[in-house]
């Protein structure tokens, strides 16, 4: 194997690991959309809130990292439920554009609130995980962890949706929301639970991102748009589609970045996205 091959392999591995992070983000957004039919434009900002929770609990109050992670997951789940109760629930019946604008407004609200409360400084939890060296290839443990968690999260979510009563009810609502009410399912409870689970997934993403990125009020800008794009590419609400799309996008970014440049890799990713939207406007894996 020549040296160039090793570097290409490293780029591919990095692409897979980045795909894991993006897939995890897409998972929660897709769940919410699939069940409630609302897009949380502010999803990446919920992740930001989770990162701040973790930072304060671990660094400032000295909680052990695992406990702080757990608290952040529960905390963001609560935020998700709150977001549903206060913002989404009152406008559930209104035009989709209003719902988009409302969650878009939340994006700015959360960004500004974080700026107001924590300032614009970049904060870091100061935790450094080891690096795995395989010959000339270095693999970031924190990325590997994110990748593994994304896989486990996806499987757990799949089992939850296919094996539990609540999960089946969620999927049923996604298929036909009118009839489910008539059959005695409490839609409000299902929506609230879905929002909490979506929030918990954002909290989980926060726990993993905080190992790789500094926390600042605008961290969402790095992930929000691409997560949204991945969800649309996979077919909004289609969780498997989102999962696959995350890896396709991350490979285009990684390999394009390796052969050309990072800038061009994003151009390629967007061109791919636009072409796919023409060919399969319903999404990659939609039936």
């Amino acid at each position: 194997m020549t040296r160039v091959d090793i570097f290409l392999l490293e780029a591919v591995i990095n692409g897979i690991l980045l795909g894991g992070v993006l897939a995890l983000l897409a998972l929660g957004l897709n769940l919410i959309f699939g069940v409630i039919d609302v897009v949380w434009i502010c999803y990446a900002e919920l992740v930001m809130c989770g990162m701040y929770m973790l930072f304060w609990l671990h660094v400032f109050f000295g909680w052990p990292i695992l406990l702080a992670c757990l608290a952040a997951i529960v905390g963001v789940a609560g935020l998700g439920a709150l977001l549903h109760l206060l913002v989404i629930s009152p406008i559930l019946g209104s035009a989709p554009i209003n719902q988009l604008l409302a969650t878009g407004g939340m994006l700015f609200f959360l960004q500004s609130l974080a700026t107001l409360l924590f300032g614009t400084d970049f904060r870091n939890i100061g935790l450094r995980l080891p690096v795995i060296e395989l010959g000339d290839i270095f693999i970031s443990y924190s990325r590997l962890l994110a990748f593994g968690t994304a896989l486990i999260g996806a499987i757990a979510l799949y089992l939850f949706l296919s094996r539990t009563y609540l999960g089946i009810a969620m999927r049923a609502i996604a298929q036909d929301r009118e009839i489910m009410g008539l059959m005695g399912v409490d839609q409000r409870r299902i929506y609230l639970t879905t929002s909490a689970v979506g929030g918990a997934l954002a909290g989980l993403a926060a726990c993993l991102l905080v190992l790789q990125y500094d926390v600042h009020p605008f961290i969402g800008l790095s992930f929000g748009p691409i997560t949204f794009m991945i969800c649309v590419l996979g077919g909004l609400g289609n969780m498997i589609g989102g999962f696959v799309a995350a890896f396709i996008m991350s490979q285009i970014i990684a390999i394009g970045g390796y052969y050309f440049s990072i800038e061009i890799s994003y151009v390629l990713a967007f061109v791919f996205f636009i072409v796919l939207m023409f060919l399969r406007p319903q999404g990659l894996l939609a039936r």
């Binding site: 990095n14 980045l18 394009g256 800038e263």
Partner: peptide, 17 residues
């Protein structure tokens, strides 16, 4: 010589190069 966006979520391919 390579440019990237300041908001890019990943720079690992640049590091590899």
């Amino acid at each position: 010589k390579e440019a990237y966006s300041a908001n890019a979520p990943d720079l690992s391919s640049l590091v590899t190069k």
